[in-house]
Design a protein around this nucleic acid. Structure first.
Lengths: 225, 225
DNA sequence: AATAAAAGTCAAAAAACGGTCAAATAAATG
DNA sequence: CATTTATTTGACCGTTTTTTGACTTTTATT
């Protein structure tokens, strides 16, 4: 299946142009001319996102953050701002690369190809996460059910759980979890994650009488497959 | 373990400078001032490579190709040439990004961080090492299987095993193994490696009734092909 | 066969790590 | 504002891992 690229820019001219060109290159394209549209199109599960930072009425960096909360595909910024500070910000906000306008189509497609090559992952865009034995996470209402009974989690507990389940089977060290769930800015983890893992485990254990989170000694935690 | 960055540039000034800066940023650094040196240092298993395209006596792009033949980590070109043709060539030759000289350290480190983050995600996605007769290492869940049965390894055991299997067939002396798995800075005790090799062998032997790690007398160890 | 150097073994010491709890702080709620 | 709830922190303890060093065995060399 062809790679799917989401283009986000307020100028329809540009999205059309890019859409056409990338189409010729064998990609499927999605175009959004506003932040809201972009967020909606995330449901289509793009493999890569080209994101204009400078859209009127929308903070591109903030948008990037939101997007990062939903998908993990590469994000390439398109920006007219060339100051270094902006570049750095771009990375800090979860972007993977940036291209300053004006840019050539050749350069753009080269980078797109490079990033897609590097990023081979399978993901889904469902708003409900379920595990093998009937545990269910509804991401939009932020509730968790085990069969009939609801298990109540706090915000951080929920976020941390969502993170682990999304990447079930993968081991993450505490620092990584802290960065991903709390935010990229904060340094270290100082044991907060430990405590939250404990709370989650305890709630899950009481309701389900099962263990879901496994400790990998000296490495971190993972959600059991 | 900290990420390891290989810096390849003919100017010792520059490699020293970058080495120092990246060191302060928490990376382990390796420096090469020639293509041959670079290829040799690949044995240390860098996580990212900064490669000067314009080295006298060496064709940087050709070198990049060779490197790609041995490792799959991100390669960022450092180049004085700014023509677009060169940029595109860079990608065509297996590079993942380029930075034109002169560049700021901030920009460099931002890109390095971005690429490492991405590469790690891509690798963790579905990275599995297998050996000829059905031994399987899942790097993301950090589990090892022989057929149906799982073999449990500690962190260091796992890391050491991953290293040997990654470079299967190559012989490494204990000091090199120690450097690569424990870290470059660590004090040069190689007796530890002996003990870990023993543990790994013992676990593997019990589960598989086979020998995987071969001792090359007076030299070191290697994973049998 | 004797010897020295290298590699293997084992158990005990040391260090690192994770789980737990209670108390402190911050944030949300009415 | 007061009260409740969520989050963070730091100390403690038991466990697992890692390291160490003394000792044995193997190997290459003479």
């Amino acid at each position: 299946m062809a790679h799917r690229i989401l283009i986000v820019d307020d100028e329809r001219m540009l999205t059309d142009l890019l859409s056409e060109h990338l189409g010729e290159c064998g990609y499927e394209t999605l175009a959004a001319n506003s932040g809201g549209e972009a967020l909606r199109l995330l449901q289509k599960g793009p493999d890569l996102i080209l994101l204009d930072i400078n859209m009127p009425g929308t903070d591109g960096l903030e948008l990037c953050r939101s997007i990062r909360g939903h998908v993990s595909c590469p994000i390439i910024f398109l920006t007219a701002r060339i100051s270094e500070q902006d570049k750095i910000n771009g990375f800090g906000f979860g972007g993977d690369d940036y291209i300053t306008k004006p840019f050539s189509l050749k350069e753009l497609t080269a980078r797109v190809a490079a990033h897609l090559r590097r990023d081979e992952r399978a993901r889904r865009g469902s708003s409900v996460l379920t595990t093998a034995d009937g545990l269910l996470m509804d991401l939009s209402s932020r509730r968790v059910y085990f069969g009939e009974t609801e298990i109540v989690f706090s915000k951080k507990e929920f976020d941390l759980m969502e993170y682990l389940i999304t990447y079930r089977g993968q081991v993450f060290d505490r620092e990584r979890i802290y960065e991903s769930v709390w935010g990229l800015d904060a340094e270290g983890d100082s044991g907060v994650v430990k405590e939250h893992i404990r709370k989650i485990r305890s709630k899950l254990r009481e309701a389900t009488r099962r263990e879901y989170i496994e400790t990998v000694w000296g490495v971190g935690y993972k959600w059991k497959d």
